[in-house]
Amino acid sequence: MGRKSPSSAQPAEREPGRGQVPPLNALRSFEAVATHGSFAAAAATLNVTHWAVGKQIRLLEQWFGKPLFERRARGVQLTAEGATLLADVSDAFDRLASGAGRLRDRRPVARVAGTVKVNALVSFALSWLLPRLPDFHRRYPDVDVRVSTTSRRLRYVGDAFDIGVRSGPEQGAGLVSRRLMADERLPACSPALLRDHPIGQVEDLRRHTLLHSASTRGAWAQWLREAGVPRLLPERQMEFEHVFLQQAAAVEGLGVALVSLPLVQRDLAAGRLVCPLRATTWRAPDYTLVLNTERESDAAVSALRDWMLEAAAQEQGQLAPG
């Protein structure tokens, strides 16, 4: 028998479900936009352009044949179909991350030993680094991490650190800066605070106490300008010496704090804090690793540096202000 011509050949059978999966890059962009409520914030999180995110969303909407977002003057809002898709996409990404984590934990870890001196901002050390250090110690039980805190520029600290964490890069002899993660800020408060005085729009902050910290005194003014209400006067204002005290005050229901999302992610996940206003996210300078070049190649220093970068990268895609 002769060969069948290409036009008469039957298409190969596909495994059930294959070929029915939307583009994965588009799904990642969709989750980021749905999480942050705007194309611009999603683009910043994904380190791509606003145009690239918009292209991925259009591609996904064409694939499904229906809109997934309602475009508004300030940000976007999920349609009913988009909300249904978000639940499935988030669940799928969570299961994928969980499976990858289990597989990664089975890899043999080289025996690394030594001491690493970390100098970080107080709020970052208390709210981000210390709660996650047990995971690093499980991976590298022979590495001794010594944490100190100060807000001084690291070029004045001398050789008293191997890895520093600062807001924004630092320049100087013997220093090299490397971006750790974005610092996005939103108003946050205790859920109980909203029972008597709900916050549905920025103007509702007039009925609340705004919480400040000495080191971020101008943050609220900057956020209110970007939100379009620069002259908003709250019912009351309170100031604390440190950012972590400001965050603790918000958890206790003393008022509304302008929080750094990476630092309060555990409070958001546990329901101790909520972010009632998602449309306007203020992007502060990125959290940055500042490395002592004389110690950068040390195995223990490299292990902690890589672990911090990995942990930050995983969490940036999971920030959930809602």
Score class of each variant (00 low, 15 high):
Pro6Asn: 14
Pro16Asp: 15
Gly17Tyr: 13
Gln20His: 11
Pro22Tyr: 07
Pro23Val: 07
Asn25Gly: 14
Val33Leu: 12
Thr35Ala: 13
Gly37Leu: 01
Ala41Ile: 01
Ala43Lys: 06
Thr45Asp: 12
Thr45Tyr: 06
Thr49Arg: 14
Thr49Ile: 09
Trp51His: 14
Trp51Pro: 06
Lys55Gly: 02
Gln56Asp: 15
Ile57Cys: 11
Ile57Trp: 12
Arg58Gly: 03
Glu61Met: 04
Gly75Trp: 01
Ala83Gly: 06
Thr84Trp: 11
Asp94Ser: 14
Asp94Val: 02
Ser98Trp: 09
Asp105Val: 02
Pro108His: 08
Gly114Lys: 05
Thr115Lys: 08
Asn119Gln: 13
Val122Arg: 08
Ser123Asp: 15
Phe124Trp: 07
Arg132Lys: 09
Arg132Ile: 02
Asp135Cys: 07
Arg139Leu: 14
Tyr140Pro: 00
Val143Gln: 08
Val147Gly: 01
Ser148His: 05
Ser151Asn: 13
Ser151Glu: 15
Arg153Trp: 13
Arg155Ile: 03
Tyr156Ile: 03
Tyr156Glu: 15
Phe161Gly: 11
Ile163Ser: 09
Ser167Asn: 03
Pro169Gly: 05
Ala173Asp: 12
Leu175Met: 07
Val176Ser: 10
Arg185Thr: 00
Leu186Asn: 04
Leu186Tyr: 01
Leu186Ser: 03
Pro191Gly: 08
Asp196Pro: 03
Pro198Lys: 06
Gln201Asn: 09
Val202Trp: 13
Arg206Ile: 00
Arg207Ser: 04
Thr209Ile: 02
Thr209Val: 00
Thr216Lys: 14
Thr216Glu: 14
Ala219Arg: 06
Leu224Gly: 10
Leu224Asp: 12
Leu224Lys: 13
Arg225Phe: 10
Glu226Cys: 00
Glu226His: 01
Gly228Lys: 04
Pro230Gln: 13
Arg231Thr: 06
Gln237His: 07
Phe244Asp: 13
Leu245Pro: 01
Val251Pro: 03
Leu254Lys: 09
Leu258Thr: 04
Ser260His: 11
Leu261Asp: 11
Gln265Asp: 14
Arg266Asp: 15
Leu268Gln: 13
Leu273Gly: 05
Leu273Asn: 10
Ala279Glu: 13
Arg283Thr: 02
Ala284Gly: 08
Pro285Leu: 12
Glu294Ile: 03
Arg295Trp: 13
Ala299Lys: 03
Ala303Asn: 01
Leu304Ser: 06
Leu304His: 05
Asp306Arg: 04
Trp307Gln: 08
Ala311Glu: 08
Ala311Thr: 00
Glu315Met: 05
Glu315Ser: 09
Ala320Thr: 02
Ala320Arg: 08
Ala320Tyr: 06
